[in-house]
Design a binder for these strands. Structure first.
Lengths: 226, 226
DNA sequence: CGACTTAGTGTAAAAACGACGTAAATGTAA
DNA sequence: TTACATTTACGTCGTTTTTACACTAAGTCG
């Protein structure tokens, strides 16, 4: 083996979820050195026979029991001293997942004591360069939400326009006009009106919509600005 | 050293240049195994004490003698079998450089026999997964040119609006209306009219402009659509 | 049935975009 | 020196898109 083969690489994931009107990410409490007992992004060393994407999916699955999630590589962090035990590159992924109260997260694997959803505005001090990794991830989805339909990934399959608007306001950090928002969203023709109303709310129930992937696929190539 | 420390990583660069009305990238002819004598993107193993960005700058400098170049990491390629000698991640960067006939490229370092500028529409078969790396890089700048002022990096400091329009047409692969293009470009207020004319052309000389980084910096945060 | 809460809707003014044609400047060749 | 070829430079108007803005309808709760 050549002398250059002396490095390792890992995946770290910024997993966004939307819950109780707040944007949260998944953090673990580390159970191993280095940074034992610190909060950290879920991440792990990539296996010998895993591609990066496969590894990211595996890690997400181990942590949450979830599969089939929109997930994307966005940057690779490689400062010389970012890991105390040697040269370790970290390839960062973000994921957006539906946080239904019903689907509890499955027990997580050994490398963490516990995992929690934490509001992105109240993050604790993080291990390694994970704060930097998070910052870049947030920046990324802020930009991406304009041109790709990632907001839908955070919502349950059936959602109201108000819920959708909340997500946009949370991520972009500004207030939007309700009428203009609805007009624009509906004008893309990618929302399917389900002829069905919200239930269990103590006020007028809103119409439920579903994101229509087929219709979205037909727009491919056109630049959209949600 | 832990058993996971058995991998290596490299940088590969997609270096765009604009010359004689064509968009080109820099390719090398490899002088070493594997893929000896093949065409490849310029790239190299990252040094032990180099960050990724430093390494990318070094490689670019070794190849072209150029420094202070707009360069950006855009994706990391990590398929298990992408390198025949072991697990080697490749972090891809793109750069856009001014290709003046005057500044010849400095002699390149040992890992290549020779380097050439090749029209992106006439690429030869490339080593490793370099075709894939190139494709993704091209896609990236196609999207990025809309929202960031990267087109200017390809031009000499003083340029005409027609030259600028050529770049936009080449990268986006469509014809633009001259009047509308000028109107829009000038409306951003980031071009400084130099009160100076093109020289050495056999027809009416055009006004020269310079990209004004200061004014552009003031627009920060606003979403621009060039 | 009154009070409260959220859903749902339209219009007008401003801004941005897209299509389009002609005259002025300059070098070149006859 | 003149005619020609080439390229710069410029403005308008109709269309589309974006923005700002306020009230009524529906449903729940007491």
């Amino acid at each position: 083996m050549l002398p250059q083969f002396n490095s390792a690489f890992s995946i770290d994931c910024v997993i966004f979820g939307f819950d109780a009107g707040e944007l949260k990410i998944l953090l673990i409490e580390r159970n191993e050195e280095p940074f034992k007992d610190w909060w950290a992004l879920p991440g792990n060393i990539v296996g010998e026979n895993e591609s990066l994407d496969q590894s990211a999916s595996r890690i997400l699955h181990e942590l949450t029991g979830l599969g089939d999630i929109y997930m994307e590589q966005y940057y690779t962090f490689g400062d010389v001293a970012r890991h105390p035990q040697g040269r370790v590159l970290s390839v960062a992924y973000y994921a957006l997942i539906r946080l239904g109260g019903d689907k509890a997260l499955k027990p997580i694997s050994n490398y963490a004591k516990q995992a929690y959803w934490v509001n992105i505005k109240e993050l604790p001090r993080l291990a390694f360069d994970h704060q930097q990794i998070f910052d870049k991830g947030l920046e990324k989805i802020k930009r991406r939400i304009k041109h790709q339909p990632i907001a839908f990934e955070l919502l349950p399959e059936k959602f109201t326009l108000t819920q959708l608007q909340n997500i946009y306001e949370l991520i972009s950090d500004k207030k939007l006009d309700k009428r203009n928002f609805r007009k624009k969203m509906l004008s893309f023709g990618v929302l399917k009106d389900l002829d069905e109303k919200q239930k269990g709310v103590s006020f007028r129930a809103a119409t439920l919509y579903r994101f229509d992937k087929r219709k979205y696929a037909k727009l491919f190539g056109k630049e959209i600005s949600f």
